[in-house]
């Protein structure tokens, strides 16, 4: 299999569409024949990232590179950035507003979940500039 690249734009205003890109990525990986647990792990991590983009980042872009041994994902937004990454990584810590909690998110599980379901996670963030999260899931 050759390296496959996917690119998605995520709206920052339409919460109902959040998850569209993750669903497409999941479908692609499934069709390519990746194992179910790998497909699910990638789907959950990207979905949490996509939700974060909509809640906090004002939208952004998702780039995925798929090779037989590794799935690399880059989620980039130009939102407010994360002032304290270690705090944001704590389970239960959330800055999401009440309207987001009413939608079933904002429990402070987003970033910890992304870490849980991926093999590598690098967060590059600058307050006022945005956040880029680079993820890797190894197939074997």
């Amino acid at each position: 299999m050759e390296l496959l690249s996917l690119h998605y734009e995520v709206s920052g205003t339409d919460f109902t569409c959040a998850g569209e890109a993750s669903g497409k990525i999941k479908k692609n990986l499934k069709e390519l024949g990746f194992p179910t647990n790998i497909v699910r792990n990638v789907a959950i991590a990207v979905y949490e990232g996509e939700i974060n983009m909509v809640i906090h980042g004002g939208g952004g872009v998702i780039d995925v590179e798929i090779s037989p041994d590794c799935i690399s994902i880059v989620l980039a937004d130009q939102g407010p950035g994360i002032p304290d990454v270690s705090l944001a990584m704590q389970e239960g810590y959330s800055t999401a507003p009440d309207n987001v909690r009413q939608l079933g998110f904002g429990a402070g599980m987003g970033l910890p979940n992304i870490k849980k379901y991926t093999d590598e996670m690098i967060i590059e963030t600058e307050v006022g500039k945005g956040t880029t999260i680079k993820l890797k899931v190894f197939v074997n």
Binding site: F15, K26, A43, I44, Y47, I51
Partner: peptide
């Protein structure tokens, strides 16, 4: 809300 279906999908 649609995210319930999305969550189930993932």
């Amino acid at each position: 809300n649609p995210q319930v279906v999305r969550t189930a999908e993932m």
